[in-house]
Simulated scan of single mutants.
Amino acid sequence: MKMVMMFMVMMMVSESSMIDQTCKETPDFNLCVSLLNSDPRGSSADTSGLALILVDKIKVLATKTLHEINGLYKKRPELKQALGECSRRYKTILNADVPEAIEAISKGVPKFGEDGVIDAGVEASVCEEGFKGKSPLTSLTKSMQKISNVTRAIVRMLL
C-alpha cells in the first residue's frame, strides 16, 4: 500500500513538474500554469498535448468574445462598425487559426501551428485598435493576446 501511495505521489510531482518546466519557458508562467492545471488532460500531456490544450483555450475565449460582440450590437449601436470588424476577426480565429493550429500540431508540423496561434493574437489586436481607445472588449482582447503568446512559446518548443 505504501508503495502504491509513493508511486502516486511521484506521478503527481512529475505531472506537475512537466507543466511547471514547460511554463517556465513562456512569457507568463502563472497564466500558463493556471490554464494547463484547469484542464484534466494537462496532468498527462506531453508538450504537443499542452499546446493543444492551450489552442482549445484560445477557441473557448474566441467563442466567448464573439458572444460578447453579438450582445454589444444591441447595447452599443454606435460601435456597429468596430464590432463588425471584431466579429470578422474572431470568426477568423475560430474558423481558420484554431483549426490550422490543431491540425499542424497534431500532424507534427508545428511551424504552421505557430502561424495560427500568432494570427489569433494579431486578430485580437486589430479588433482592439478598431475602437480607437474606447473598446468594450479590452479585457477579452488582452486575454487573447496573452494566451496566444503563451501558446506560441510552447508551440516553439516543438520546432
Results as ranks from 00 to 15, higher is better:
residue 131 F to G: 00
residue 60 V to Q: 08
residue 141 T to L: 04
residue 105 I to H: 00
residue 42 G to C: 05
residue 42 G to Q: 04
residue 51 A to R: 05
residue 6 M to W: 14
residue 6 M to V: 09
residue 124 A to P: 06
residue 129 E to P: 08
residue 78 E to A: 03
residue 151 T to Q: 04
residue 25 E to G: 13
residue 113 G to L: 00
residue 107 K to D: 11
residue 153 A to M: 09
residue 90 Y to D: 00
residue 81 Q to S: 11
residue 122 V to T: 07
residue 85 E to P: 01
residue 64 K to I: 13
residue 147 I to T: 04
residue 118 I to Y: 06
residue 129 E to F: 10
residue 143 S to T: 15
residue 34 S to L: 11
residue 135 S to E: 00
residue 59 K to Y: 07
residue 60 V to I: 12
residue 92 T to C: 06
residue 91 K to Q: 14
residue 155 V to M: 08
residue 149 N to S: 15
residue 111 K to E: 01
residue 138 T to I: 05
residue 153 A to S: 07
residue 12 M to Q: 09
residue 131 F to T: 00
residue 110 P to L: 02
residue 108 G to E: 06
residue 113 G to K: 01
residue 51 A to F: 05
residue 33 V to S: 11
residue 45 A to E: 01
residue 129 E to W: 05
residue 20 D to P: 10
residue 37 N to D: 10
residue 135 S to C: 01
residue 130 G to H: 05
residue 124 A to V: 05
residue 95 N to V: 08
residue 9 V to T: 15
residue 37 N to R: 12
residue 152 R to F: 12
residue 57 K to I: 09
residue 31 L to Y: 07
residue 82 A to R: 00
residue 33 V to T: 10
residue 138 T to G: 03
residue 13 V to Q: 13
residue 71 G to R: 11
residue 115 D to I: 11
residue 53 I to F: 03
residue 67 H to T: 14
residue 100 E to M: 02
residue 42 G to T: 10
residue 130 G to W: 02
residue 95 N to R: 14
residue 112 F to Q: 08
residue 41 R to W: 04
residue 116 G to Q: 03
residue 64 K to N: 03
